[in-house]
């Protein structure tokens, strides 16, 4: 085979992408190896996160050196991550479906691009600016009007901020799909005497259902890994499962950030290793969700659409 230097060089550049991904997974796995041995599998179901006594001499457990009293339970963070994201999706779905329908059908052609650009811009506002707005506007609002304790930081604030951040993902996916529904389908529904809203809700929405679900799962993947905005409004609850919408929570991502200082103080590095394991757990969760979204949108599971 002929050697083509140009093709080889761009190929090697593009191979850097898989290489980076493999390196990320590999180093997280290797680095968290000792933590996996120490924590076992039950740390997923344990709610108690304790760095142990960092100033005493480390003790040796099963041949692994850890600070005395160290115990790394991550259930609180898994629950916080899943719960805040699911509530966010519950809020985001009606918002984005309503906005997409309104943009597709009710808005005059001239202002549609402006409004749909505004919706898209919600997605590009940096996470940390959302967090700032959360602290300045949303948290005081929740604390003043909704929360019985007067504290606005917590699960609900996190979920609302997350919902706002992922709404544009669902809305723009759905808007694109709605605009592609064939004219004939709309017109036949009108001809049957349906009102305009019935045309949208009963004739058009069923056609874009798969796309909608794909968009929702994609948004879920984004919400699960969101860090800064959640960190700033979540209240940083640890060692207790949330029992109300106003309870402080931590997500895996926000917890990793918040642990930087204490992890650096650990002479055995075991907490740094466990955080690495935690990052791996987050990676696996988002990978599963994103892969599901990809299967849904690529049409591998899209039997209904193919038949019609």
């Amino acid at each position: 085979m002929q050697i083509r230097p140009f093709r080889l060089s761009v190929l090697s550049l593009s191979l850097l992408i898989p290489a980076a991904l493999v390196a990320v997974v590999l180093f997280l796995v290797v680095y968290s190896g000792q933590a996996m041995l120490f924590n076992g599998l039950h740390f997923i179901f344990n709610i108690n996160w304790n760095l142990g006594d960092l100033y005493s001499d480390p003790v040796t457990v099963n041949g692994i050196s850890v600070p005395p009293g160290a115990n790394y339970g991550i259930l609180v963070f898994i629950v916080g991550t899943l719960l805040s994201s699911f509530i966010a999706i519950l809020i985001a779905v009606p918002l984005s479906v309503g906005s997409a329908i309104f943009l597709a059908e009710a808005v005059p052609h001239r202002i549609r691009p402006v409004l749909s650009m505004l919706v898209e811009l919600v997605a590009v506002v940096p996470s940390v600016v959302f967090g700032l707005w959360g602290i300045a506007v949303l948290v005081p609002f929740i604390g003043h009007y909704l929360s019985p304790t007067g504290n606005g930081y917590g699960l609900l604030a996190s979920a609302i901020v997350l919902a706002l951040m992922v709404t544009p993902i669902i809305a723009s996916t759905l808007l694109d799909a709605l605009m592609q529904v064939p004219k004939e389908n709309r017109e036949s529904a009108f001809a049957l005497g349906a009102t305009h809203f019935e045309v949208v809700s009963k004739a058009m929405m069923p056609m874009v259902r798969t796309t909608l679900i794909g968009g929702i799962v994609l948004a879920l993947g984004r919400a699960l890994g969101e860090t800064m905005a959640v960190l700033m409004v979540s209240g940083g609850g640890i060692n207790i499962l949330p029992d109300s919408p106003f309870a402080p929570i931590s997500t895996i991502a926000s917890f990793i950030v918040s642990q930087l200082d204490s992890a650096e103080a650990d002479p055995t590095n075991m907490s740094v290793r466990t955080l690495s394991e935690l990052a791996l757990v987050l990676f696996l969760i988002t990978l599963t969700v994103n892969a599901t979204a990809k299967l849904l949108t690529s049409g591998a599971l899209n039997v209904r659409k193919r038949q019609s």
């Binding site: 980076a20 991904l21 390196a23 990320v24 997280l28 890994g225 990793i256 990052a279 988002t286 990978l287």
Partner: peptide, 18 residues
């Protein structure tokens, strides 16, 4: 490449840290 796009940025940050 899509998997890397979907990876939370904090995971990449932690990878670089270690």
């Amino acid at each position: 490449s899509d998997v890397l796009t979907g990876t939370p940025s904090i995971v990449l940050g932690y990878f670089s840290y270690i």
